[in-house]
Amino acid sequence: MTPSSAPFALDPQLAADACTVGDLTLSRVLLMKHARYPWLILVPRRAGVREILDLADAEQACLFGEITQASRVVQTLFRPDKLNIGAIGNMVAQLHVHVVGRFKTDEAWPRPVWGAGSPTPYGAAELEERLAMLSRAFGRI
């Protein structure tokens, strides 16, 4: 699919499932509303983009740099046993990349987090604290 000339809009499902941390050069950084996992989602702010190959070469390089940056933030703040990174897109077609910190003690280990129990929501204060911590870690994005 060719990227659209329409303005960027976040898919409604992503907007419902996550909170905005801020914007990097290319991507909007989201925090998944699932308190059991340190779970970020990067969404390139390009309308009509469904696959990484839909991005220009320079944008692909930028996205991979931002995935690395998000991975370092999760690794530094949460010290997971493993990072899971994926751009599946079967449920939400808009290109988005998950960066999930995994622990050998989490309920889904070693299976994928998708479909493993119901999401545990953040409390209001916990969510505010987590978003502020992530924003600081990304350099006040």
Rank of each mutant, 00 (worst) to 15 (best):
64 F>C: 02
97 V>D: 01
61 A>F: 11
44 P>Y: 08
117 G>A: 01
51 E>Q: 15
113 V>R: 04
92 V>T: 10
83 L>I: 14
130 R>D: 00
68 T>Q: 10
130 R>E: 14
114 W>P: 03
88 I>F: 15
23 D>C: 08
35 A>C: 01
68 T>H: 14
113 V>Y: 00
109 W>P: 00
77 L>P: 03
96 H>P: 04
2 T>Y: 12
40 L>M: 09
112 P>Q: 03
23 D>P: 03
138 F>N: 09
89 G>Y: 05
45 R>T: 13
104 K>L: 02
141 I>G: 07
109 W>L: 01
32 M>S: 10
5 S>A: 11
108 A>H: 02
18 A>D: 11
132 A>F: 14
14 L>W: 07
97 V>H: 08
68 T>G: 04
117 G>S: 01
106 D>E: 06
108 A>V: 08
30 L>P: 09
63 L>M: 07
82 K>G: 06
23 D>K: 12
36 R>W: 02
82 K>H: 10
7 P>W: 04
82 K>C: 05
46 R>G: 04
107 E>G: 15
59 E>N: 11
81 D>G: 11
65 G>C: 08
82 K>P: 06
82 K>M: 09
17 D>Q: 14
113 V>N: 02
88 I>L: 15
123 G>K: 13
123 G>D: 14
135 S>A: 12
34 H>N: 13
109 W>T: 07
112 P>S: 05
32 M>H: 07
44 P>M: 09
96 H>S: 04
96 H>Q: 09
39 W>C: 00
59 E>Q: 15
5 S>I: 09
94 Q>E: 15
58 A>K: 06
23 D>N: 13
17 D>R: 15
129 E>L: 07
13 Q>V: 14
120 T>D: 01
98 H>S: 01
60 Q>T: 12
109 W>I: 06
55 L>W: 12
11 D>T: 10
69 Q>C: 05
74 V>G: 10
55 L>N: 06
12 P>H: 04
81 D>I: 13
104 K>D: 00
122 Y>N: 02
51 E>L: 12
85 I>R: 04
27 S>A: 13
90 N>A: 03
130 R>F: 04
139 G>A: 09
63 L>T: 13
39 W>N: 02
113 V>P: 05
35 A>D: 00
97 V>Y: 09
42 L>I: 14
51 E>D: 15
77 L>G: 05
45 R>Y: 12
33 K>R: 15
67 I>F: 05
106 D>C: 07
72 R>H: 14
